[in-house]
Design a protein around this nucleic acid. Structure first.
Lengths: 225, 225
DNA sequence: GATGATTTGTGCGTATGTATG
DNA sequence: GCATACATACGCACAAATCAT
């Protein structure tokens, strides 16, 4: 007996949707860049129909903007937008931290701890700035806490916001010791989760994200982006 | 000189998107109902392309579900889903109440108070159950508070959640005096906003929504929907 | 501006899959 | 099982709007 079963082929729509998302996250498409339906369709040798559908969805999510002349561009958040996004993230991710503290299993705790161990390793061995793997590990920390909250809707809401602030994630680690500060804040959050103190976990998450946005604002002011 | 300028014609896509949303809200399409792209296209004598795009977007929002056989149905939340949605609404709408308290103008305060005055009128004159205008006025109360928070992202997040729980909104007013209780809770929230006590406004909103979901769960258990 | 090349909005046909008798 | 009806996924064509020359 085996578990083989025929899978639904992934539609072009889904593939293009994921692809565009990835391109935006990885910075291949940068904020403000123009996107062409037709060009993407040609690139993958498919018709424009599935591409159009993907574009509409990404626009609804906010990752793409379509102006009154139907010009499609990659979303470029203003500073005010980023502040708005963070205000939402603060309350939603704090909720996630609270729920996760109440529900997390031992195995899951280990998973979270794993990201901290790795982060520390990266930090200590790090000579170069803007280490991608560190950023990824930090993202994973937040992501696991979101997942373990066992609230699908919360997960989607947080993910959407997360996507929208992708552009600023890298900036967040610039400046004196912000990387180590983030690490310490993550450790504190984890500590409270492990101690099953949901109230403190919630507060630590809120504080962490508040620090994030404050730090980000300081950096953005300096380089007047 | 006048301010005339030519407007972009509203695309079929947008019109269909709004239309489907409305149909779902108004209960013309009920949870679980199947939807046919082709049928909608025929109904409005347009092609299926714009309809497809609208359907994709609504699926992404969660209002429509597309199963592994591409069958399109109206989203039917489980009780767990509703609880998840409310957990999110509680933190987001509390944030909205807080922000609005800090930012609201005198005119806007009057707008909010207006919904309370109308609600009261409807309640007192009401002999029949499930008064549509009362429900609409209550929705407007929440909507104004969300708007006046001046956080666009928050507004979109709350609106999406709101859409997803539309189906249960009517149930919320069933049962002994729940309609009056809702009114009193709204009045309390308004009171704190007017007094510019953002902390209390926030708490009152959280309490109100907590009462809502508890009431809803009680009703759902009884009729084992 | 006028012209030609793109690009988007929409209509429509075909292939493939699913349900039903 | 088979044939028919119908639904969706995708490709393609055309018109109108836009942009560059």
């Amino acid at each position: 007996m085996n578990d083989f079963s025929v899978q639904k082929p992934v539609t072009y729509f889904e593939q293009i949707y994921e692809h565009l998302r990835e391109m935006i996250f990885q910075g291949v498409y940068k904020p403000g860049d123009r996107i062409y339906e037709a060009k993407i369709a040609r690139e993958f040798k498919i018709s424009r129909s599935p591409v159009r559908e993907a574009v509409r969805v990404l626009q609804n999510e906010g990752l793409l903007a379509i102006d009154d002349k139907s010009k499609i561009t990659v979303y470029k958040p203003t500073i005010k937008d980023v502040e708005d996004i963070y205000q939402c993230r603060i309350v939603l991710e704090s909720l996630a931290a609270k729920l996760t503290t109440e529900l997390v299993s031992e195995d899951e705790l280990q998973e979270i701890e794993g990201t901290l161990v790795l982060s520390k390793k990266f930090l200590e061995s790090k000579k170069n700035q803007n280490d991608r793997s560190l950023i990824a590990e930090n993202a994973r920390f937040h992501d696991l806490i979101t997942q373990y909250s066992q609230n699908n809707r919360l997960q989607k809401q947080i993910n959407d916001l997360w996507s929208l602030s992708h552009y600023y994630r890298v900036l967040n680690f610039q400046g004196e010791n912000r990387d180590w500060n983030v690490f310490n804040e993550h450790q504190e959050i984890f500590h409270h989760i492990k101690k099953r103190d949901s109230k403190k976990a919630e507060q630590a998450m809120a504080q962490h994200l508040t620090n994030d946005i404050n730090h980000l604002k300081k950096i953005l002011q300096n380089q007047s982006i």
